[in-house]
């Protein structure tokens, strides 16, 4: 086991995003493991609220000093809200990836793709194997 947090109630993608569901609203961020790998995050950029995305689309990008990572959504729908506070304080993603570091909320048209994602235990062992 590594030294990262993996909240049990979330779903996880192989591309290191987490997904929280509330009704048809899906909140997305990146995992503790991912922020640790990226190191100091210096910049985030998201698509605009109101944009429609398909499952598998990129909804933004996160940059550290030495790396740039694309962010992907597992669900289709309309981007309902974007965490603008990260633009001025991208380090929040490092400090609190599952809380204040959330990135976008998508009003999902179909929640079923989430069934194909990993649960916390599966994600942990996935990270261990990397």
């Amino acid at each position: 086991m590594g030294e990262w947090k993996t909240p049990a109630e979330l779903k996880y993608a192989e591309t290191d995003e987490w997904f929280a569901v509330d009704g048809n609203m899906v909140t997305i961020g990146i995992t503790d493991y991912a922020q640790d790998q990226l190191n100091d995050i210096v910049y985030v950029e998201f698509r605009d609220a109101g944009d429609t995305v398909d499952a598998g689309d990129s909804f933004g990008e996160v940059e550290s000093v030495k790396a740039a990572s694309e962010l992907y959504t597992a669900v289709a729908g309309e981007i309902a809200e974007v965490n603008m506070s990260l633009e001025d304080a991208p380090e929040t993603v490092n400090a609190d990836p599952f809380g204040a570091g959330w990135m976008v909320k998508i009003s999902a048209s179909d929640l079923s793709p989430l069934d194909g994602l990993m649960d916390a235990a599966a994600y942990d062992s996935y990270c261990d194997s990397r």
């Binding site: 940059e63 550290s64 000093v65 030495k66 790396a67 740039a68």
Partner: peptide, 12 residues
């Protein structure tokens, strides 16, 4: 702003 560059971002 190095991460925009080809050696890090490659095909992106």
């Amino acid at each position: 702003l190095r991460p925009r560059e080809q050696d890090i971002k490659r095909e992106r």
